[in-house]
């Protein structure tokens, strides 16, 4: 066992971990931070994305011992005083999700992207979240959500008419009814 000290979502922890413990398992199983999920377990899907010293990382591909002395922020630590983070709010308002499993990682990757590029184009948003897979939405409303949040965080008006949820509701597509 190896002793580690980490700050997670603003609280300090000291724990003994096996060196082989993955950061995501430490967060979920030892600290109860189950807002961070395990998706693919192969570093592809990005669902487990957290910030390590302010940078987005896939916590299934970091050992807990590598986080010793570091500051970790999970999806559970991004709201402030009961107020959702602008990116969380935008995913809600733009309906940037369907099943919601990819959402914690999407939001953490998007916050990281907006730190580097506060005013990304649609293409830059898509490239910025290339490490996060969503199998429900087709990404349309996710991109809209990131754009809305970017505007909000820059202090721009909340909506300029360009940014609105997609009008097509795929859940109501007619061919599904026939099969049901």
């Amino acid at each position: 066992m190896t002793r580690i000290s980490v700050r997670v979502d603003g609280a300090s922890y000291q724990d003994d971990v096996e060196p082989r413990t993955l950061l995501v398992h430490y967060l979920r199983e030892q600290l109860g931070k189950v807002g961070t999920v395990v998706g693919c377990d192969t570093s592809n899907c990005g669902a487990c994305t957290v910030h390590l010293d302010g940078e987005a990382v896939k916590s299934c591909t970091v050992l807990a011992v590598q986080a010793d002395g570091a500051e970790v922020t999970t999806i559970e630590g991004v709201s402030r005083g009961g107020e959702l983070h602008p990116v969380q709010k935008a995913f809600h308002e733009m309906h940037g999700l369907q099943c919601g499993f990819c959402t914690p990682g999407m939001i953490m990757a998007s916050i990281d992207l907006l730190q580097d590029n506060p005013d990304p184009s649609d293409d830059e948003v898509r490239e910025g979240i290339e490490g996060n897979l969503c199998r429900c939405t087709g990404y349309q409303n996710i991109v809209r959500a990131v754009q809305l949040a970017a505007g909000e965080m820059r202090g721009a008006p909340a909506s300029d008419g360009h940014v609105a949820p997609a009008v097509v509701d795929t859940a109501a597509a007619p061919h599904v009814v026939g099969q049901a």
Binding site: S43, G46, E55, A56, V62, A109, G131
Partner: peptide
């Protein structure tokens, strides 16, 4: 190379 999360590490 890969994606921004991987490039950070």
């Amino acid at each position: 190379v890969a994606d921004r999360q991987v490039r950070h590490r």
